[in-house]
Design a protein around this nucleic acid. Structure first.
Lengths: 238, 238
DNA sequence: ACCTGAACACCGTTCAAGT
DNA sequence: ACCTGAACACCGTTCAAGT
């Protein structure tokens, strides 16, 4: 679309409009394409105009993180703590799947924007209301880590080994390339072993959603067991 | 130290020397200070000289990751799978604590260098030798995620809320700032609740090592329980 | 054939000159 | 007072000119 100068004035710039445009740009073109200059051009504006609304690029990233945290399903009370946490975390995961740049952005930032803190605070509230001690709740928050926001650092993705970034690639089959399979026999074995539903999906690659829920439930079940046992953290060696 | 030209020739450039210098530079000045130009200057060399030994910056980062993976304690057989994994993962954690830039570098890369794959392969070998099915081992690798390499994404660090990067800061006390504590009461409560050894450390902040081991053991214990039960992943809904 | 300076196409951000 | 072009101090990488 060609720029129409003069006749049609663009909607005025605002912090909110900048943040939404930044999120959209990162969604479509990847975080590495998100520069102040690119963003300004996308908005039909001179780069310096952005600096009236965000102090610098770091603040822009913080604002973008707040935008996506705002997309997470709000707290719905009524169920037990496990179900409440589980549902909200899986909602966060759905959000993160729309914004693949977010994990990297979150890790690169120093974190702790008010919106993230509010989210974490409500999660702790759920734990406390569920009967966990403050002590246990503290450790649980650490143990869940980034999973609370719906993502996890996956080192292990047998299929991708030399591919490019590909935010929009449709999962290019599974299994290791032959020469890698020869060097790493254990990886080769388990790469094809992810028979999630009775073997019908063998070789088709693994189900991210299943893996996420598997790990999440492993943690939640272990935590509930500790809660039932009245666990206390006074067992340091030394 | 002033440059001595002519009389003393520098040791010749090599891929290995470049990688070690890059790791040292990232350790000392942070990953954001690691540029091809800075690195070249550190080595007393013109920037273009680096490109004879590494194709580009991405390959440099991959090489750096391989260097630190090489620092992880090799496999020592003899113990059960839990002890073997636990020891190696805690060794990896010690390595990562010397190279604070590594998690971000690992996340920013597409991963799967041969050295990382070899490490993962040997970890899977430990699981299989310990009696886990290939199926379960697959899910376990996903569930452990970056913890296999000794780090985890911690969203939750109650103390740091507005501080700067600070790779060398000595942990600036604990507890939330007063105004944050008022807005986020649950966070405030658990921030001071990390009484790791019988209350004597209350208020001093939390023990990263304890939190890491807590989460790791929660996972390992849960996995061992599944193994004992002969768990199989055929219970998908639908 | 090898090495390397200059150049290219970018960054985030400052600053002073225009209105 | 506000806006913005040019400029500054960087990037990673290419390329052609030097030896």
């Amino acid at each position: 679309m060609a720029e129409q100068a003069g006749t049609l004035r663009r909607t005025p710039l605002s912090r909110d409009r900048i943040l939404r445009a930044a999120v959209a740009l990162a969604d479509e073109a990847g975080i590495e394409s998100l520069s102040m200059r690119n963003l300004a051009q996308e908005l039909g504006v001179v780069p310096m105009a952005l600096y009236k609304h965000v102090a610098n690029k770091d603040e822009l990233l913080d604002g973008m993180i707040d935008v996506i945290v705002g997309e997470i399903e709000p707290l719905v009370p009524g169920a037990d703590w496990q179900q409440t946490l589980r549902r909200r975390i899986l909602s966060a995961r759905q959000v993160l799947r729309r914004h693949l740049w977010a994990p990297l952005a979150i890790e690169s930032r120093n974190m702790a924007t008010p919106a993230v803190l509010a989210y974490l605070d409500s999660m702790v509230g759920t734990l406390r209301a569920g009967g966990l001690s403050a002590d246990l709740a503290h450790h649980v928050m650490h143990a869940l880590g980034s999973r609370i926001l719906g993502f996890s650092q996956e080192l292990f993705d047998a299929s991708r080994q030399a591919g490019r970034s590909g935010a929009t690639e449709p999962e290019p089959a599974a299994g290791l390339p032959p020469e890698a399979a020869a060097r790493f026999p254990h990886l080769a074995e388990i790469a094809t072993a992810a028979s999630h539903d009775d073997g019908s999906v063998v070789g088709q690659g693994c189900d991210d959603q299943f893996e996420f829920e598997f790990a999440l439930d492993l943690l939640l079940d272990g935590i509930e067991r500790l809660r039932q046992q009245g666990w206390r953290s006074a067992h340091r060696p030394g």
